[in-house]
């Protein structure tokens, strides 16, 4: 029996090895995620399955068909809500929409969209501002399973009260119930919201630029990454934005400590909305 400190050291070594192996075998790269969170997730999984070590888990990941999907789900960031932090959407509506309106065609990339709640939030906003028909939204996530949920636009009815409140706080112009139909325990959002959304698999850690866009929304994803990976991903965003394009992050995320900060100006310091400067080098 190891002492707690020894066991912790062994687990850290096993975890590093585990992520190397997942990267080499499955191509998903968790090596530069912040450790405390992913370690907690993996140790919870071990406890739930009654396993003794990360090495035992590793054996299952390598040799049991379909088992990796479970680990991928454990390591995905799937918690989201409609109009999460409503002030962010209010700021988009008041500060960014008037600028986007000046473009003939608007491309938006929602990176790390999980189950899609925030994608539909923004789609509704674009409809209300009369810009939806000349917009294209790319909604991406690395996890194909959550993307399937996102495509359906069906959410539990139990959440609607909270979402309605968020919608109102975000400056919504209509009755929120105009946008969905309730059926049994679920609500399904209007098909018209989906028309200009493309849902696609894209991994921020391992994949590259796929379009040049006016606005990138990526909220509460960078907080899971270490400094090195934050630099890499914000670099990818910078390459993907047109000059004068906008980047919206989560309230606790900050471009200030990344390598690309000098290429941006702050539009809304509280809601973490940035503008790529016209004079940017890239």
């Amino acid at each position: 029996m190891h002492l707690p400190d020894q066991l912790n050291n062994i687990q850290n070594i096993e975890l590093t090895h585990f992520f190397e192996l997942i990267f080499n075998v499955y191509g998903y790269d968790f090596r530069n995620y912040n450790k405390a969170h992913v370690k907690r997730r993996i140790l919870n999984r071990i406890n739930n399955l009654g396993l003794k070590s990360i090495s035992e888990l590793q054996h299952k990941v390598l040799h049991e068909e379909g088992f990796f999907d479970l680990i991928l789900r454990d390591l995905s960031i799937n918690v989201t809500e409609m109009y999460r932090e409503p002030g962010f959407y209010k700021s988009l509506r008041n500060e960014i929409i008037p600028i986007l309106r000046t473009y003939p065609y608007i491309k938006v990339w929602h990176a790390g969209c999980a189950t899609g709640e925030e994608v539909y939030s923004f789609a509704i906003l674009l409809q209300e501002e009369g810009l939806y028909d000349r917009s294209q939204i790319y909604a991406t996530d690395f996890n194909p399973i959550v993307l399937e949920t996102a495509k359906k636009a069906i959410y539990p009815v139990s959440k609607i009260k909270e979402y309605t409140l968020n919608y109102q706080k975000s400056g919504g112009k209509n009755s929120f119930s105009d946008y969905y139909v309730a059926r049994y325990e679920s609500v399904i959002f209007n098909q018209s919201l989906k028309k200009n959304i493309v849902f696609a698999e894209h991994n921020l850690v391992t994949d590259g630029v796929f379009a040049e866009v006016n606005l990138i929304i990526c909220r509460n994803v960078l907080i899971y990454f270490n400094k090195e990976l934050q630099n890499k991903v914000t670099g990818l965003f910078t390459e993907s934005l047109i000059k004068g394009g906008y980047l919206g992050l989560g309230s606790k995320e900050n471009l200030m400590f990344t390598d690309v900060f000098d290429q941006y100006q702050v539009v809304d310091a509280k809601e973490k909305i940035y503008k790529k400067t016209i004079f940017s080098s890239k």
Partner: peptide, 30 residues
């Protein structure tokens, strides 16, 4: 709120634990 083993603070938006976000267990365990 989590503490990394290199003594930095980190935040996540994961599921609630004990119906709570922030959760005390998550802070204490890390």
């Amino acid at each position: 709120l989590l503490i990394e083993e290199d003594f930095t603070l980190n935040l996540t938006v994961d599921e609630k634990v004990n119906y709570s976000r922030p959760s005390i267990d998550i802070l204490f365990e890390t």
